[in-house]
């Protein structure tokens, strides 16, 4: 089984440091095609830094990163840009362009990278907005006129604009109410299945981990401490992991995750 899976992201020996503070040291990570990988870890363990490093917003001190077979740290610009069109990033607070309407936000990457007629771009933009569950009315609105949950959905629509193979999500459900968060989880799961996406998700939300993540990577001690399906996490002998996955909130999430799993199967 291990032979058939293909690593779309391969991180080797990564070292990140800010001044004298070392965030990652000798970090290895693989992300397989078509999986939803959840990155967890305590505050300050560098989850977001890892995401930013992979998408090229932060230059590591050492190590190599390969995305879709391209060494993104050393590839020539043209190759890098090509890879960039094949991933989408949804930032924590949306990071939508505040002066553009939602539709124009989604169309912005298409304008830059695709050679399509304006009418077709508009149709595809509206399709993406509708796919993330926003009403057609939202198209013409400015980001400041949307609620937090809608902004996150709009950010996801923009991340999906170019039909990427990999989607990076930074704390997608942070700041959402439980119902909104569950709906967002479901949306990510649905899109992932429908579009065959690989999802790299930094999250704190135990419900999300149980509901949609195929695999979990725990960041601790400056590296990926353990990785694997969530069922195995309670067996790991590490104080932080134990506390995280066997605490009262984790148990509640586990019960809920199993319940939704059963209804999903039935």
């Amino acid at each position: 089984m291990t032979e058939t899976r293909e690593a779309v992201i391969k991180v080797r020996g990564l070292r990140n440091q800010f001044g004298r503070q070392v965030v990652h040291d000798n970090l290895d990570l693989d992300v397989w095609r078509g999986e939803v990988l959840g990155i967890v870890g305590g505050s300050g363990t560098g989850k977001s830094v890892l995401l930013r490093t992979i998408v090229g917003l932060n230059k590591p001190a050492k190590g190599s990163i390969e995305v879709l077979g391209v060494d993104v740290l050393n590839a020539p610009d043209i190759e890098r840009r090509e890879v960039e069109t094949r991933w989408g990033v949804a930032f924590q607070d949306g990071a939508l362009f505040s002066s553009l309407s939602v539709l124009n936000n989604v169309m912005a990457p298409m304008r830059e990278h695709l050679d399509l007629s304006p009418a077709l771009m508009k149709a595809l933009g509206e399709l993406k907005i509708s796919m993330v569950g926003l009403p057609p009315l939202a198209c013409g609105k400015l980001p400041s006129e949307l609620s937090g949950g809608m902004r996150k959905r709009a950010a996801l629509a923009r991340a999906l604009a170019l039909d990427p193979q990999i989607v990076f999500l930074d704390e997608p459900t942070a700041g959402l109410d439980p119902i909104g968060a569950a709906a967002y989880d479901e949306l990510i799961g649905e899109l992932q299945r429908a579009l065959g996406l690989t999802v790299f998700m930094v999250t704190h939300d135990l419900d999300s981990l149980y509901a949609i993540c195929d695999r979990i990577a725990v960041l601790a001690e400056k590296r990926v401490l353990v990785e694997g399906p969530i069922e195995g996490m309670t067996e790991v002998d590490h104080p932080w992991v134990q506390e995280y996955f066997t605490g009262p909130r984790a148990r509640a999430a586990q019960v809920k995750g199993q319940a939704t799993g059963q209804t999903g199967a039935g």
Partner: peptide, 18 residues
Amino acid sequence: PAYEALLANVEGAIPESD
């Protein structure tokens, strides 16, 4: 079949043109 599912998904999501 996989593409069929995607097509159905997209058809369901196309907003009514207003």
